[in-house]
Design a protein around this nucleic acid. Sequence first.
DNA 1: TAACCCGAAAATGGATCCAAAGCTAGAACT
DNA 2: AGTTCTAGCTTTGGATCCATTTTCGGGTTA
Lengths: 226, 226
Amino acid sequence: MLKEEPAPASGGEAASERVAKHLRAQILSGAIGPGERIRQEDIAEQFGLSRLPVREALRMLETEGLTELQANKGARVPHLSMSEVDVIYRMRESLEPLALGESLPLLDTADIERLGSIQSRIEANTDIQGFLDLDREFHLLSYSGCTVEPLSSYVVRLWNTTQHYRRAFIALSGPGRMWIVNAEHQLLLDAIVRRDVVDAGNILRGHIRRTRIELAQHPDIFGPGK
Amino acid sequence: MLKEEPAPASGGEAASERVAKHLRAQILSGAIGPGERIRQEDIAEQFGLSRLPVREALRMLETEGLTELQANKGARVPHLSMSEVDVIYRMRESLEPLALGESLPLLDTADIERLGSIQSRIEANTDIQGFLDLDREFHLLSYSGCTVEPLSSYVVRLWNTTQHYRRAFIALSGPGRMWIVNAEHQLLLDAIVRRDVVDAGNILRGHIRRTRIELAQHPDIFGPGK
DNA sequence: TAACCCGAAAATGGATCCAAAGCTAGAACT
DNA sequence: AGTTCTAGCTTTGGATCCATTTTCGGGTTA
C-alpha cells in the first residue's frame, strides 16, 4: 500500500487535491470510520509528500464535514450522535425537495432514462455496499440539474457525513424492508417522468422522513448513549 | 495599520485562528467586499507572520463560506449571483424555523428578555450598520438554544455569506419599509414568549420569504446580469 | 491599430527544519 | 495501593527557502 516513489510526475492537478480525493474515498467507503484519528505524517508518508499538502487536504475535507481539526490535537472523522444525525435528516427533508425542484426542469430524457436504469440495478442488487453506491447515485443524479451553490454542494455534504450511519443501519435492519425503498423510488421516478415537482417533492420528503424514523429505532448504531 | 511587532507573545490561542477572526470581521463589516482578492503575503506582513498560518486561516474561512480558494489563483471573497442569494434565502426559510424549533424550548426567561431589549434598540436605531448588527444579534440569539451540529453552524454560515447583500439592500431601499421588520419581529417575539413553535416558525418563514422577494426586486445589487 | 507572442515579475504550492503543545509512562510521595 | 508530578516522546503549528504557475507588460507583426 506504500507508494515510495516521490510523486511520479503527478496528474497535473494539485497534490493536496489528490490527497483529499483519496481520503474522501477512504472515509466514504468506511475504511476510516467515525471517531478514527488521521495522523498527518502517516498520510504524508503514504503519498511521499510532506505534511503540508496533507494539512491542506484535511482542511478541504473539513469544508465538506468529513473531518474535524482541533488545534494541537489533530484530525478525526467526526463522530455523530443520534440527535445530530436526526437533525441532518430533517435538514435533508427540506433541502432535497428544494434541490429536486431546481433540478427537475433541467433534466433531459437521457438523465431520466439513466435514473430508471439505476433503479433497475437497485432492485437486482443484493449486497450492502452495492445498494449504498446505487442509492447515492440515484438520488444525486436526480439533483444533478441543480447547479446553484451552496445548495448543491451542501446536499452532497449531508449525504457524505451520514454515509457511515446509513451503512450501519442497512447492515442491521437487513433486506426485510428493502421493498419500501423500491416502492418509494418507483413513485419518485414516476413523478419525475411526469415532471411533477410537487408530487416528487412530497414523495422525496416522505422517503427521507421514513428513513429518519426507522433510524431512530436503532440507537445502538451510535456510540455513547447521549 | 501595520503591526511590526513579531506577534507579542500572542493571546495563547493559535495564530491561524487570530488571523481567521480578523479576516472574518473584515469581511462581515464590508471592509473586504465580494469579488475582492486576498493576497496571502499582505495579511502575513500585517500580522508579522509567515504565509502559512494565513493559508490555514483562509481554509478555515472557506469552511464558513466566507472565502474561496482556487489552486494557483489565490483567495477571493465569493461573488454571489442573484440566483445564489435567492436559493440561500429559500434554504433559510426551511432551516431557520427548524433551528428555532430546536432552540425555543431551551431558551430561558433571561434570553427572552434580552431579545426584547434588542428589539427595542432596533426600533430606536437609525444607521445601517447598527441595524445589521442588531438584527443579526436578535435572530442568532433566538437560535442560541439550538446547539446541535451542523444545523447551528450552517445557519450562521448562511447569514455570514449574505451579509454584504443585506447591507446593500438596506442602503438601497432606505428606512421606508423598516416598520415591516419591526412588526414581524414583534409578532415573532410574542410567539416566542408564548413558546409557540408553530406560530414562531410560520412568522419567521414569512419574514425571510418577504425579504427574499423584496431583494429580488433589486437586481442591480448583484454584479453582472446573470 | 489591433492581435499575438514571449519574457519577467509576482503570487501561490510544496519541502525541510525548528518550536511548542499533548499525551503517556514511570517514579516518587502520601 | 492509589494518586500526582515529572520527564520523555509523539504530534502538530510555524518559519524559511525553493519550485511552479499565473499574470501582466512590452515588443513585434499581420
